[in-house]
Design a protein around this nucleic acid. Structure first.
Lengths: 276, 276
DNA sequence: TGGCCCCGATACCGCGCGGGTATCGTCACT
DNA sequence: AGTGACGATACCCGCGCGGTATCGGGGCCA
């Protein structure tokens, strides 16, 4: 009866569905089934009645649900209190491009509500470092876009967005519903400096056009220098620009990333709040 | 930060000593050191100052100690409540020989105080079955003496007692401080029936004297039939009998035993209370 | 000051548990 | 009868948690 198993149980109890609970817990269904079964063996009684159309709590299951809820809340509070005593009072979040407005704002808000005494410092990184300073210790946790080299870094996917090409509104191709990379073979692409993470650059770079480092420079390059470039779909663009989906680019994950060895104990809580 | 680790931490915090805490937890010292270290890494702060003469809690450690205590108590209560709801209301304890008075009484008393609503049924077994009915399901947990075949059975040692030979007070050898089995080579030994667990019988049987099944029959056999027999030292004997330590017999463990798959959820609690 | 002892840390090993993917059994609904 | 949804099962793999053996370092005593 460890806390993780109880968390699993609570998830199933609330979702009334092993599959949904599993996704909510960021695991798959079979381990969850086994964990519940083990919990039942440990307590010596059935906790839920399985039926093909979902699950129902038994009396014992309902009792455990209440207990587990308070237990988990108390455990969480214990962690918070210990960390408060230990003196950690700041968490630094790195953001890349517009992840700060996309998902960072809600995550930071949730975190601030959860840890009223903690200062949340946002550090907006330029586009050359997808880790936004994780490796150099400038930030404790990053909200960024993949793919990039994740050795020594833990990540969790928040969302996955299709990739499009950024064009000027008056571009001849700007009316297309979708495009392929071959349609743009002759164009000049803005790209990122050599210092950028190799995997990230291979994914986002095309051709050998002008080098940019920030979202601003991307925008200017397209608007005033008539280049094109890759960008995820589904977020606001400055007036005069549009994004056309590309058929032959794999989608890009929007993710939260943190060091595998996390010296800042607040990171775990932030990740939980950011990913639900 | 699972519950087991917190239990480890509480033990160290209370003992102020890794070694003692480890024995109290029925593990060895290295895993305990690692667990605490991992807990510290998880929380991101030192919990105790190690010095060669023991350990001291840091401020964070003291905070965690309080939290952990309440958390563990609540977890225990959660387990108890769920089991109560599930309908289990009886635990049957098997005893062998005089284990019932030796350790069973205190264990049963502790259990009754801890679980006021639960009926504790004691089933005293004769000496032919060292499991006291564990395998056949007659009892949920046994307090008995080793060694015996433990396949499918979990055990925990309560104490280890030297083995002696039971003699009549007026026996020529009854004045010796210690004896060897060779000193008794010519004697008739009482022994246990063939149905008895093989390992147990090999340990306790000598020669091919009269068969006994109960403590009473052992006593009578020695007093009235002038046989001798093996018995652990350190417990009361009827008037007229005495026990002389044997130099060449390995000591016998007094242990609590329960099925590896334990259908009765109260067993865990009983074992904890019996072994401290 | 050198030797010893105590205690916590570390190294290494084997096994079981907790993840994963692939597949099955079963029930409800066409 | 066929199909789809859902939980259970089978199997695999890597890590965590136990174990034993050993190290390092600080006190204590001769």
């Amino acid at each position: 009866m460890d806390l993780r198993t109880l968390q699993y149980f609570v998830a199933v109890a609330e979702e009334r569905h092993f599959g949904r609970a599993a996704t909510r817990l960021h695991i798959t269904q079979p381990p969850l089934s086994r964990a519940i079964k083990r919990l039942e063996a440990d307590l010596g009684c059935l906790l839920m009645d399985r039926s093909p159309s979902g699950v129902d709590l038994t009396a014992a299951g309902a009792a455990l649900y209440d207990e587990a809820r308070t237990l988990l809340a108390q455990a969480d509070q214990a962690r918070t209190r210990v960390i408060a005593v230990s003196g950690t009072d700041t968490i630094t979040v790195g953001t890349l491009g517009d992840t700060v407005s996309e998902a960072g704002a809600t995550a930071a808000a949730a975190f601030r509500e959860r840890h009223p005494g903690i200062r949340v410092r946002i550090r907006e990184s330029d586009l050359t470092d997808p880790t936004t300073g994780l490796r150099s210790g400038l930030v404790d946790v990053a909200m960024t876009r993949g793919p990039f080299d994740t050795t020594g870094i833990m990540t969790r996917v928040l969302r996955t967005d299709p990739i499009g090409v950024v064009l000027r509104d008056d571009d001849p191709l700007a009316r297309a519903l979708t495009l392929a990379l071959t349609d743009l073979a002759e164009r000049r692409w803005f790209r990122f400096p050599d210092g950028t993470d190799a995997l990230w650059r291979a994914y986002w770079n095309r051709g050998d056009g002008p080098v940019v480092r920030t979202v601003q420079e991307c925008v200017h390059s397209v608007l005033w220098d008539n280049t094109v470039g890759l960008a995820p779909l589904g977020h606001e663009l400055p007036k005069g620009l549009t994004t056309i989906p590309l058929r032959d680019m794999p989608p890009s994950p929007l993710l939260v990333a943190w060091p595998a060895t996390k010296p800042n104990p607040l990171v775990r809580s932030f990740v939980e709040l950011a990913t639900g």
